[in-house]
Design a protein around this nucleic acid. Structure first.
Lengths: 343, 343
DNA sequence: TTTATTTACGCAAACGTTCCCGGTAACGAT
DNA sequence: ATCGTTACCGGGAACGTTTGCGTAAATAAA
């Protein structure tokens, strides 16, 4: 089955003109008479001419499409970011190609190769928690592919980045738990190498110190797949519950981790917030419906996406190489609900 | 900024061959000597040659990309379907372009035009609840664009369709409520024109009749935007609560409707399931965490996506026009939890 | 040795555009 | 009458591939 489209040639033939004239008329060139222009434009409209984007891409050597790599689109944070990206990209005539890494460095590499081979004009990516080797990404970038990082950014590559204020977000979350009277606050977070993990840990630790608590390494648990596999959350919780002094509050530093921890707490019949307070990063729109309603740190996901694509388009459409990069840091929102309302 | 790639010409020049020879060597043509092939292939590998998909697209007159239109990717059902589509598309060398209609017929049309102009090779779509005019879709289809419908299918167009067994799913849900002792069972569903609405209504009505209940039209409420706007759900619930005999159970026929109804019930301090039982279509992975844990009808979303893309690729890659269309109907799963455990 | 066949490669067109060069009128100025 | 402008328009190359056709050399058959 094939889908036959009308081309500039058809117009030229029908009107007894050359393709160049038609092309110019359509692009409103000054060296075409108003009369001819009218003729061409009217006829083009009549037969519903649509320029072939593929031919254009070949000529201009760009595809007017940009790649997005996230670990999972079913994750509310990422789907909201994508919404933000799409909202701008569409109006600027770009289409987006989404690939999911599923928190696997291997799949991420495959996605990267796939997108590169489809010659996207730019890339927006939140890397895997697994990723340690950025050489392919670096190579792509050095060969001229514009890249913008968001959320899980990589600092080794100098380009635009957009994140939320992880330190402050975590500080606020931890401080809230302290204010509520919790004493033994555990942190369940992603893999140690990740920049956002470091930042969220820093915020957590700073809040503890500022309020006269000591940081207990036993209370900090890393899930190297960010909760994509339930078993690692289970390990974390088991270890936490194996301690002499069990935590009386948990701060979960990502969407999947938050629901994962709650699931396990429920399985253990631990009462939230009476026995354990729970606060988590989340962008889900159902956290108020959960039992108990969840106190969350919410990231401005949609805006993150919008800013990321703006910065990327800026790079793509820039005449000369961009050298002045910025890291945009957005504020998070703390939404207080019952899951931390114990004491 | 530009991203310079290595072409077949570079190889030809470097090796003192013609581009045709290089092309043929790369495609392992019989009329190229083994020696030359080895040379070309080795060199291509060395400089990491990647065929330009755009040039190929122009030549073959296809883009190896397929369009997907759903109302919202943040919806778990749709993101799972997309996962299914992607899982197959990627292995077959196709990339997917996702567009969101946001339940707006206007945006849907714009998406359609956008995808058509990007010359996708095929389309997988679940139409808007608003859509009543299928002429553009029909036109596209008649001009040769392969289309597969899923979920919200349109019967006026004869092509492959894949849905879940809506009648049975709704029958089971309604029967479950009856079995639990509920007597006044309301249905909150999408706009009346939609095929899946009709089917789900049919299942609901059949179950009622089969068990000696009369169908009360007052108990059937339509939300024309499928719950995308909270106000319409509010209207529905308000009307239901305005009845002399209030319903003692609600069957919500979509993801957004289910959480939307629950939200309103909570706002009214209605106890679920004691005062009102609640069952809903949902593919969210957190329904067990909700208060109360939700009884749901779950669709095989991932499989729906996989089958849809299989059927589409079959159409795309078929030499002669496909005339034999099938409608695949998959079974839903009823997951019983506390929200219907009243009596 | 001559002719027919095979082997191995190059030429050029095509896909749909854009755009750099031209070129041809018409017209006013010299 | 000649020249320089201006206004319009067409020819053709180019973007990176594939592919039908042509053809030289090498080999086989006569």
């Amino acid at each position: 089955m094939k889908f036959e489209a009308v081309t500039i040639k058809d117009i030229a033939k029908a009107l007894g003109l050359s393709t160049s004239t038609v092309s110019r008329a359509l692009r409103d060139s000054y060296e075409i008479s108003p009369e001819t222009k009218r003729l061409v434009i009217e006829y083009a409209q009549k037969i519903n001419y649509q320029p072939n984007p593929i031919a254009l891409s070949l000529k201009e050597r760009k595809s007017r499409s940009i790649g997005i790599i996230v670990c999972e689109i079913a994750n509310s944070f990422f789907s909201q970011v994508i919404n933000g990206i799409e909202s701008i990209a569409n109006t600027r005539g770009y289409n987006i190609i989404i690939a999911q890494s599923k928190e696997s460095a291997e799949r991420e590499l495959a996605d990267l190769q796939f997108l590169a081979s489809r010659s996207v004009d730019g890339l927006i990516i939140s890397v895997t928690t697994e990723t340690t080797d950025y050489s392919f990404l670096k190579d792509l970038y050095q060969r001229g592919l514009p890249i913008v990082f968001f959320d899980r950014i990589v600092n080794e590559i100098a380009t635009h980045k957009v994140i939320s204020d992880n330190v402050k977000g975590s500080y606020d979350a931890t401080k809230h738990l302290i204010d509520q009277g919790y004493k033994n606050i555990a942190l369940v977070t992603s893999s140690e190498g990740l920049f956002i993990t470091k930042e969220r840990m820093a915020g957590y630790q700073a809040a503890l110190k500022d309020h006269g608590f000591v940081v207990n390494a036993d209370y900090i648990k890393h899930c190297n797949h960010s909760g994509m596999i339930q078993a690692e959350i289970e390990d974390a919780v088991n270890q936490l519950w194996g301690l002499r002094k069990k935590p009386d509050a948990i701060f979960a530093a990502s969407d999947k981790l938050t629901t994962g921890v709650l699931r396990l707490l429920k399985a253990r019949k631990v009462k939230v917030p009476q026995q354990v307070g729970l606060i988590g990063y989340s962008n889900a729109d159902y956290t108020e419906l959960i039992d108990p309603p969840l106190t969350i740190v919410k990231q401005p996901a949609f805006e993150i996406g919008q800013i990321a694509i703006e910065l990327l388009l800026q790079m793509i459409e820039s005449k000369r190489p961009v050298t002045d990069f910025e890291t945009r840091v957005l504020n998070t929102e703390l939404i207080i609900r019952a899951s931390t309302r114990s004491k």
